[in-house]
């Protein structure tokens, strides 16, 4: 099922979506499942913030921005995305790898 959603989409070599406008909530769930993550309300707080920031700035937010501007703090962020929130929050949100260092 998850593969169906993803099969029509294009990804770069690192698995980030080529076209972030093709992203929707079903895609997010499928991308998360691929990373072994089942999305909860708390994940959605992060994902929505990532999408909003991208809409405004054209870039994925830094983790520091996420923890500053949402109620998700560093510890929880790493629990939500155990494989590395720097990569995964952006990936699941259909965005490119964040360019920020922090």
């Amino acid at each position: 099922m998850a593969d169906d959603v993803l099969s029509k989409l294009k990804f770069d070599a690192d698995g980030y979506m080529e076209d972030s406008s093709a992203w929707n909530e079903k895609v997010a769930e499928a991308l998360a499942a691929k990373e072994g993550i089942k999305l909860t309300d708390r994940h959605w707080v992060v994902i929505k913030y990532c999408r909003d920031t991208f809409a405004k700035t054209g870039d994925a937010p830094s983790l520091r921005n996420i923890t500053k501007n949402t109620d998700v703090q560093t510890k929880e962020l790493y629990e939500l995305f155990p494989g590395g929130p720097g990569k995964l929050a952006a990936k699941v949100s259909g965005l490119k790898k964040p360019t920020g260092c922090i």
């Binding site: 983790l63 494989g83 590395g84 929130p85 720097g86 990569k87 995964l88 260092c101």
Partner: peptide, 12 residues
Amino acid sequence: MILANAARMGGI
């Protein structure tokens, strides 16, 4: 600190 943080962000 910056390198350690970058590593953790990438799940290392």
